[in-house]
Amino acid sequence: MHQVIELERVAKRYDSADTPALGPLTLSVARGEALAVTGPSGSGKSTLLNLVAGLDKPTDGAVIVAGRRIDQLSQHALATFRRAHIGMAFQFFNLLDDLTVCDNIQLPAQLTGTRRRDSASRAGELMEMLGIQKHARAYPGRLSGGERQRVGVARALINRPELLLADEPTGALDTASGHDVRDLLMDLHRGGQTIVLVTHDLSLAETVASRTIHLIDGHLARDTHAQASRRACSAPAR
């Protein structure tokens, strides 16, 4: 099976720390897999996500994403790689408040040089799929948390990335909005999207992910593959 992520004895140590924040860790994530990363605060979840996103560089080891060793890329090459292959959704959405929903979603597409007409068409498609098309001309400040997270996910998917990274995507949402986003991630997974989901929420991990790894003090404490049958039964119908 084609691996979208391969971490080979990856370690990350911050300047002042005695022990590494992460690793050494070896991990592979296959195409179409939905991996949940759980663990207590300070266990290395965000460090792992940042390394996979290329936002941070490992102290040791190799980070290979979509077949490219990204820990050796320059800042410019890394940015170009990230915009083409990785989509990110954040806990606090990180939308640009001075851009409309539609412009926020299209921003990464413009970076890749996609024609405005094509990116608008793709954004329209995503907004319809995520049920936010009526907010296309609205500014993010006027939307609910769940709607804003949908916009964030739409923006992450605009370039059809091989990998969607979601950092606590329900962490700032109320229960109903959280369920909305959970269902959205499940739909994306069913559609074949590779997802890495960092979360404190074990029920979200259990519902969405096909595999869960649990980190403690930067080390892999548990690696659980969900049974296909259980996933099929527990997946709520939409």
Binding site: A53, L55, A79, M88
Partner: peptide
């Protein structure tokens, strides 16, 4: 800084 962080995560190069 917040905006820069967002733009970086979206794939903006340092020059952009």
């Amino acid at each position: 800084l917040r905006r820069i962080g967002i733009l970086k995560a979206l794939g903006f190069t340092p020059r952009e």
